[in-house]
């Protein structure tokens, strides 16, 4: 009975040669990663991780993927080819979200239970600094020039501005309730911070650390309390932001010049984070409660498909395969 083995082999060969880009999704309550093939829009691989995986990001050369295994108190480093955990990085307690510095070497990690931001050198695998921030740090960002890191704290309701040279705070700015996510945009001149319970995105002028605009969201027939901005990402050239609005089950398309919402797109339940494909023509959103990923066509602003993944998908990261 050699035939079935041959068939399996050739299938395996096919699947590794027909390379398509991928979206990697962490499943918070399954302790797994679902890998979505962008060509077929199907889950092609599932990898086991530590407990409660949330934040996920690839190294700049995509040779390894970093995973916040929150309840294992570790940042795991995985080989994306094999799904094998290579080693754990020291991370401080309960790492929830992190960001990789443009130097491709330093990870800035939010330790949710400890009110600390931990800076880890991924080469020496040591903790370089720990910075006291507000309670429940979560959103993390680094400016494109690498000089400023941001931690947002959910219960203290602040964006904490870290000088990456000295690893100390140089400013603390109040935002609305439960800030969740932060991004530098427009070549690092603006910082956007979402506030889940406040229902807003605050936009800061980075040079002065002052708020220059605030975006509100309003969806017909959905009470404002349920419109809770969380993760967001920008289209090419930072012209538009796609903003996940949590339990309102919609994402907003925001014009990043006028700060006005242009459209709301219905996706899955409790939409949380997202990432784009290579040319940013498609967006993949994680929907925690419905346990799926919605694929959105960026040009037409239409939801194309829902892809079932694990339980409580949280983070999403794009991986090119060539």
């Amino acid at each position: 009975m050699k035939l079935p083995i041959l068939a399996t082999l050739s299938a395996a060969l096919l699947s590794t040669t027909a390379l398509a880009d991928e979206i990697w999704v962490t499943n918070e309550k399954d302790d797994t990663i679902s890998v979505i093939d962008i060509e077929t829009l199907e889950v092609v691989r599932t990898f086991e991780t530590g407990e409660r995986p949330r934040g996920i990001t690839f190294s700049k050369d995509y040779s390894v993927v970093y995973i916040c295994a929150s309840d294992s108190d570790a940042v795991q480093v995985m080989d994306p080819e094999t799904g094998k955990i290579l080693y754990d990085l020291p991370s401080g307690e309960d790492p929830e979200q992190f960001v990789l510095h443009p130097d491709n070497r330093h990870l800035y990690i939010a330790n949710e239970d400890d009110a600390i931001t931990t800076v880890v050198d991924t080469e020496t695998r040591t903790v370089v600094a720990q910075i006291d921030v507000g309670i429940e740090p979560e959103g993390m960002a680094v400016s494109p020039d690498g000089k400023i890191a941001i931690t947002t704290s959910e219960t203290t309701n602040m964006a904490h501005w870290i000088d990456t040279e000295t690893q100390t705070l140089f400013a603390n700015t109040l935002v609305d309730s439960r800030p969740r996510h932060a991004e530098f945009v427009k070549e690092g001149t603006e910082l956007w911070v979402s506030a889940e319970i406040g229902g807003t995105i605050s936009i800061f002028d980075v040079a002065t650390q002052t708020e220059k605009a605030k975006i509100d969201f309003e969806i017909d027939n959905i009470h404002p309390d349920r419109v809770q901005p969380v993760g967001f990402e920008f289209t090419n050239g930072d012209t538009h932001a796609f903003v996940a609005l949590g339990p309102s089950n919609h994402i907003a398309v925001v014009n990043a010049e006028t700060y006005e919402v242009e459209e709301y797109i219905l996706v899955g339940r409790r939409v949380w984070h997202m990432d784009f494909n290579r040319d940013r023509s498609q967006l993949f959103t994680t929907n925690g409660v419905s346990g799926d990923v919605t694929v959105v066509d960026v040009a037409s602003r239409k939801a194309l498909k829902s892809i079932k993944v694990g339980r409580f998908p949280w983070g999403a990261a794009f991986r090119p395969t060539e």
């Binding site: 507000g134 219960t155 602040m158």
Partner: peptide, 10 residues
């Protein structure tokens, strides 16, 4: 404790 943490930045 939570008030103190927030307060120390302000």
């Amino acid at each position: 404790e939570e008030n103190i943490t927030t307060g120390r930045f302000l």
